[in-house]
Design a binder for these strands. Sequence first.
DNA 1: TACTCGTGGGT
DNA 2: TACCCAAGAGT
Length: 314
Amino acid sequence: MTAPTESTQTTPGETLHTPVIAWFDAHARDLPWRHPEAGPWGVMVSEFMLQQTPVNRVLPVYEHWLTRWPRPADLAKEAPGEAVRAWGRLGYPRRALRLHGAAVAITERHGGDVPSEHAQLLALPGIGEYTAAAVASFAYGQRHAVLDTNVRRVFARVVTGVRYPPNATTAAERKLARALLPESERTASRWAAASMELGALVCTAKNETCHSCPIAGQCAWRLAGKPEHEGPPRRGQTYAGTDRQVRGKLLAVLRESITAVPQAALDHVWDEPVQRARALDGLVADGLVEPLPGGLYRLPLTSPLTSPPTQPST
DNA sequence: TACTCGTGGGT
DNA sequence: TACCCAAGAGT
């Protein structure tokens, strides 16, 4: 057809929903957490792992994780350090700690079932606005604005006509996402997944492939000649020489070791003692590392998220 | 609000 | 090579 037939009522995003969802049905990746058997727990685990980590690196860890801990209660029974160890090299290991804490909370407060209400999801450790909406939408088919970096970029281009969205999510973006949300629950949840996938596969940050885009004909940015990004430079991340790098090296040693590690083994991963000590202190403060008497360190057996550390008086 | 928090692959 | 980027959360 060349023109949409007249409808009794139109919603703002109607001309976007149909082509994007049709594109999604034809081109969506076959990812394990999109299978029905993944269930809400599988969806939730995938969302934690996908926070700032690419799909390809998540896949093997996800499979291992769900095999080992098929239900929240299975993970809740483990020491948090085991979650950190199984997290491997996904990065941002505090996510592993929070996922473990979320499993404990789900077991204690929700009878072992991932809650379906947005507010209850939001109350779990490691779940913010995006993840709560994503789990409610993808796992339970609810109608929520799921505003991740991919969707923000798609909206910035198609609607606003700029190459990149603002550095931090704005109220205007949330309002736009709500306005573009399809009316029906089913269509809204499909739209959430489809618009994310479009940003991940076609409307990418660099080397976007507009010739494959189902809504290229109505993209404000493309129609404006794809102007370059204006405004403040997008915040880059330096890494070499930072505390994050030192923390990563320290934690890698502890992940590889089944037994507690002596201070000397940690000392040799970084030669600058002040920064090294600061990084280790930070890991301990975050609950990612547990200090033992005698200058030994190990991954944590107790959780900083669920049980306040009880200090036995000497 | 702006900053911290890992890791590795692509360009 | 050095930089850029990847389904954010917490403070």
